[in-house]
Computed example of a mutant assay.
Amino acid sequence: MFMVRCERAGVSGAAVQRQVSALHTLVRRSIPVLLVIGLPFFFVGGPGFYSARSRVHLWDLGHILYFGLFTLWLTGLASDWQAALSRGRRLALLVLLPFVAGLIIECLQFAVNGRRPGMDDLFRNTLGILLVLVFQCWPLQESRQRLCLGVLRAASLVLLCCALWPLFRSVRDEDRAWREFPVLADFESKGELSRWYHANQLRQEKGIVRHGSCSARVQLSTARISGVTLLHFPHDWHGYRWLRFSVYNPLNGPLELNCRLDDSRHRRTHGPYSDRFNTQLVLRPGWNDLAIDLEEAEKAPKGRRMDMSHIAGFSLFVVQQKAPLALFLDHVHLN
């Protein structure tokens, strides 16, 4: 249909084919440039520890794009190997070369910035290789080979969905956090647990609840400092007076709970203890409905005021407990 329309417009099919071929050649020739430009980003730049979860997951997907382009570039070179290597060996090299390159990059990352090699990154590297190979494969004639290729394509798409899932989940929870603000965490969805640092210490709880249908069980250890920190939330608290939350103490006696609140300037400059808000709260047995005066928190940093429009984190922790214990946290909100 496209060719017919072009011919009706006075453009011959041969001319269209030449244009498509020229565009294809341009894309192929631009890939090495993109690979050179993209290589430094494995070692510098990118999201930091306090960056939004969606930005982190989106950045991680760059592994799929980079190694997909790398493999696509190698497939263009495969014709040069045709006389010297069998088809099976060419395919093996198309898999092996990008995979080894990924391993080298992971090792160099450890040498350059101390980042330990991660299986997640290797998975994304391999997925980029696989996607290009199964969708840029040489034509297969036998029905059994076509069936095998179809299965591989379906499997690669399933793996791609698995790789995209963390990004989708974080975007969905970030949207929910903005819609529910000034509620910071009510734990009605499991996605809210990922808003906290040391999320592996939190578990959704339906038996001991202060508000709604769920709370969070917070597992604490005997480490010198054990707790959790809310990192991912709307950071502009300007105009709110109170930070309120409920904590359940399962012990028979009182428990001292430490609270910390800091802004982006404190995090950026790694300020001292006196540059943030710190307080100790005594929990009686059972549920405790607690409130922090944000006007007091604003005045807490020595020599300046806390930037309430750029709150960076809210921490709850205990110090040097004699035995592990679990607290229950619910309905963290502003008013």
Rank of each mutant, 00 (worst) to 15 (best):
M1K: 08
M1W: 06
R5W: 13
C6G: 02
C6Q: 12
A9H: 07
V11W: 11
G13T: 14
A14C: 07
V33H: 04
F42I: 11
F42K: 09
G48T: 11
R53Q: 13
S54K: 03
S54H: 12
S54C: 09
V56T: 11
W59M: 05
W59L: 05
D60E: 14
F67E: 01
G68T: 04
D80G: 12
W81R: 03
R89A: 13
A92P: 04
A92N: 06
L94W: 03
V95I: 15
L96E: 05
I105A: 07
L108M: 15
V112K: 07
P117Y: 08
L122Y: 01
L127K: 01
V132D: 00
C137L: 00
W138L: 09
L140M: 12
Q141N: 08
S143T: 12
C148V: 13
G150F: 08
V151E: 00
L152C: 15
L152K: 03
S156P: 06
V158C: 14
C162G: 04
L164D: 04
F168E: 06
S170F: 01
R172F: 03
D173F: 00
A177M: 07
E188G: 02
K190I: 08
E192Y: 03
A199E: 10
Q204P: 01
V209I: 12
S213L: 13
A216H: 05
A216W: 02
R224P: 00
H232G: 08
H232W: 13
D236L: 06
H238Q: 14
G239T: 09
G239H: 10
S246L: 05
V247A: 09
N249L: 12
P250A: 11
L251S: 15
L251Q: 15
N258Q: 14
L261V: 15
D262K: 07
H266Q: 14
H270K: 10
P272M: 02
P272F: 02
L281H: 01
L283N: 01
R284K: 13
W287P: 00
D289I: 02
D293K: 04
G303E: 10
R304A: 10
A312H: 11
F317C: 08
F317K: 02
K322E: 15
F328A: 03
D330H: 06
H333E: 12
